[in-house]
């Protein structure tokens, strides 16, 4: 009787979330999967084309460019955001005066709309009126001045930079919370045994907060995989698709070129890629947990 009551309570609690998740996540995902096997311009009848969209996508140079751009963003975000976030959080954790103020300041960019950040950086990079080149010149690095968004070599990284920078604050906040959950007696014990700050970080804190690091990595990777705003606002993914990620390419394909079939195929690959990364990270985490 009791278990039936518990089951009923669970059902009642889960029901609204189940409905919302099914309506706005599962059903659209299934629909997208179905559309990926069709040719549809959003207006006329859909035509079933089998796996031709997938075949075309594999031969599409622009798709692979955006795929590689996305992988680069995933890699750079993980390599920069997580270590920098952890390092800054650790510095703040080591009894820095005014920690709460710093935490707020570091978190501030996270709550600013990516559109605003994108616009701000495109002005910042402007060769004629932008501050970036002027600052470089002022600090004696004039030789590094560049047309950041008009140079094929710097374009992609100039578009990535604001996004990577913007979300570092998120990881600082996560890691700060994680660090505060580490029992102080363990750290005090290590200090009594003569361990320095670096050793404590390496030998005690990182293993203790491993789950937080994995979650942060998953957030960073999946966040990068669905990147859109910065690239779209700064360059519309261009010139061509040189600064586009998979999300931007999907949007351009579906809503600019009205090829919803191919757009759905790109979406399916984004989902698969997200799943792959999440599974990989969980496997690695489990391995080290053991």
């Amino acid at each position: 009787m009791k278990s039936r009551r518990t089951a009923f309570t669970i059902f009642v609690f889960l029901f609204p979330v189940f409905i919302i998740y099914t309506l706005f996540m599962i059903i659209p995902l299934i629909q997208t999967f179905v559309y990926s096997f069709t040719q549809w311009n959003g207006v006329t009848e859909t035509t079933f084309t089998g796996i031709s969209n997938y075949v075309k996508l594999l031969q599409d140079k622009d798709y692979w460019t955006t795929f590689m751009n996305t992988l680069k963003l995933v890699g750079l975000s993980a390599v920069i955001q997580i270590p920098v976030g952890l390092l800054v959080a650790y510095l703040l954790y080591c009894k820095v005066k005014g920690m709460k103020i710093f935490r707020t300041i570091f978190f501030l960019p996270v709550v600013i709309a990516p559109v605003a950040i994108g616009l701000m950086f495109s002005l910042f990079y402007n060769s004629e009126i932008g501050l970036f080149n002027k600052i470089l010149a002022a600090i004696g690095l004039g030789a590094l001045q560049n047309n950041w968004l008009s140079n094929v070599k710097t374009l992609l990284y100039a578009v990535m930079a604001p996004q990577i920078w913007q979300y570092i604050g998120l990881y600082i906040t996560i890691f700060l919370g994680a660090l505060q959950s580490v029992p102080e007696e363990i750290i005090e014990g290590a200090e009594i045994d003569g361990a320095n700050k670096l050793q404590i970080l390496h030998r005690i804190i990182i293993p203790e907060i491993r789950n937080f690091i994995v979650i942060s990595l998953i957030l960073s990777v999946t966040g990068s995989l669905k990147s859109f705003d910065h690239s779209w606002i700064m360059t519309k993914g261009g010139p061509g698709v040189r600064s586009a990620y998979l999300g931007v390419y999907m949007y351009k394909t579906s809503f600019v070129n009205s090829d919803f079939g191919k757009g759905s195929t790109i979406t399916v690959t984004i989902v698969l890629l997200s799943l792959l990364f999440t599974i990989l990270l969980n496997i690695i985490n489990n391995k080290y947990s053991d």
């Binding site: 002005l123 402007n126 004629e128 047309n147 950041w148 968004l149 008009s150 360059t235 261009g238």
Partner: peptide, 8 residues
């Protein structure tokens, strides 16, 4: 033209 034709 301006050097930076994207932002301009």
């Amino acid at each position: 033209f301006p050097e930076d034709t994207v932002t301009n």
